[in-house]
Amino acid sequence: MATHAHTADPDAPAVYEQFEDIDQQQETYILGMWSFLVTEIMFFGALFLIYSIYRWQYQGDFYIFHKELDYVLGGINTTVLLASSFSVALAVHYAQLKKKRQQLLALGFTLLCAFGFLIIKAIEYGKKFEHSKFPNDTFVWDAAKYGGDPEHARLFFSLYFSMTGLHGLHVLIGILVIGYLMYLIAKDHPVITDYVPTELVGLYWHFVDLVWIFLYPLFYLIPK
């Protein structure tokens, strides 16, 4: 798609042909991102609703099952994500100041955190697989030893895997997007000369972080 600048400023970011000027383009992008995040909220919202219903229905059982989850690893992951949220906010800040090096550094740190998160998540998943907690045919729940209904254990772990899995998928997509953004910044691509793309990525990343902020207590910290 052809882009053409309406302003004389050579430093100004490219404006796509459907927009009048850069302001309109930026506002539109940000509004579009927010609408997209609304759909994401509904997407996860349905899962959280399902979770709440069953948690309420099988309160005692869920307490028993949650002990399977490692709240220390989960806690580390929470910290990692919070740190990454901070660094992505910094990236937006530097983008506004047009400090390219710092911006890249901040994004790089975010990327690092994201990888760290996924690695820790992978370790956790690995343990669950070892202990036959993945809800397929190999699933085992020793009810005699731990108590709790095996079917509900299966339900709990299906919710665990589908919700953290979907979240993990979002982290993965985040990694790809941040990586691509860094590539464009490094290349001084014309669409990237202002802060809005970074801001959009930041919004998305904050959302991913926020989802985890809910997931962590709901799964790892169930009170008796």
Binding site: Y58, G60, D61, G147, G148, D149
Partner: peptide, 13 residues
């Protein structure tokens, strides 16, 4: 069918 879901007070599973 699933007695442990709601236990009567004073009893175990």
């Amino acid at each position: 069918l699933l007695p442990w879901l709601r236990l009567t007070k004073g009893y175990e599973t």
